[in-house]
């Protein structure tokens, strides 16, 4: 096998490098090499959203991209959004609204919601938008936009309440 060109990128602001086995997913790299265990492996096939991280401002499934593909990228995991003694407003809202039971999907939900709020602020439409050019942040919109994150405990209504709590007031 020819040598793998190393990828140099940043995770939560810290420069990292990876040039090992190209099979390693970004998800496995974050957990197994950086010991960032917040990001969770659920299905490992892009269906559950538990592995959601933010790459260059966009939420993606870290199970469906390779560590070597991250050259030049800025990656934010749940550890980069807040810490035990300095929770982000979204993390505090998840606690206040009981936005979880077992908590396994929660880091993915929080990374996803964090990027989703930015997408809404940019005016991105969704499948349920009546008008593609003028989007209103209804609960139906929030549910559709969070449909890439499954919660088998069924905390969906409280997750939406938590997200609603930290969103800028419409208008």
């Amino acid at each position: 096998m020819p040598p793998t060109p190393p990828a140099r990128f940043k995770v939560n602001g810290t420069p990292v490098q990876y040039g090992g086995d190209p099979r390693r997913s970004l998800l496995d790299f974050l957990r197994d090499e950086l010991s960032l265990y917040g990001t969770k492996k659920g299905c490992d096939h892009g269906q559950c959203g538990a592995c959601t991280v933010i790459v260059d401002g966009r939420r993606i499934n870290s199970c469906l991209t390779l560590a070597v593909m991250q050259d030049g990228c800025q990656i934010t995991t749940v550890e980069g959004l807040g810490s035990d003694d300095d929770l982000s407003p979204l993390q505090r809202a998840f606690i206040a609204h009981d936005g979880f039971q077992c908590g396994y999907c929660t880091p993915g939900q929080i990374c996803s919601a964090s990027a989703m709020i930015a997408e809404l602020a940019e005016g991105w439409p969704s499948h349920v938008s009546d008008d593609l050019l003028s989007v209103l942040p209804t609960d139906e919109e929030l549910r559709e936009r969070m449909s890439g994150n499954l919660c088998r405990c069924g905390a969906y209504s409280n997750i939406i309440a938590a997200i609603r709590d930290v969103m800028p007031v419409a208008g």
């Binding site: 892009g46 499934n61 005016g123 439409p125 938008s129 593609l132 050019l133 890439g148």
Partner: peptide, 25 residues
């Protein structure tokens, strides 16, 4: 799907893309 020209002039395309997969994908 987020491009203003696509949303305005090719809403069919924006709608089809937004009907597929998840935001992460």
């Amino acid at each position: 799907a987020a491009d203003q020209r696509v949303r305005r002039d090719y809403p069919l395309l924006a709608r089809a893309i937004l009907a597929g997969a998840s935001p992460q994908l």
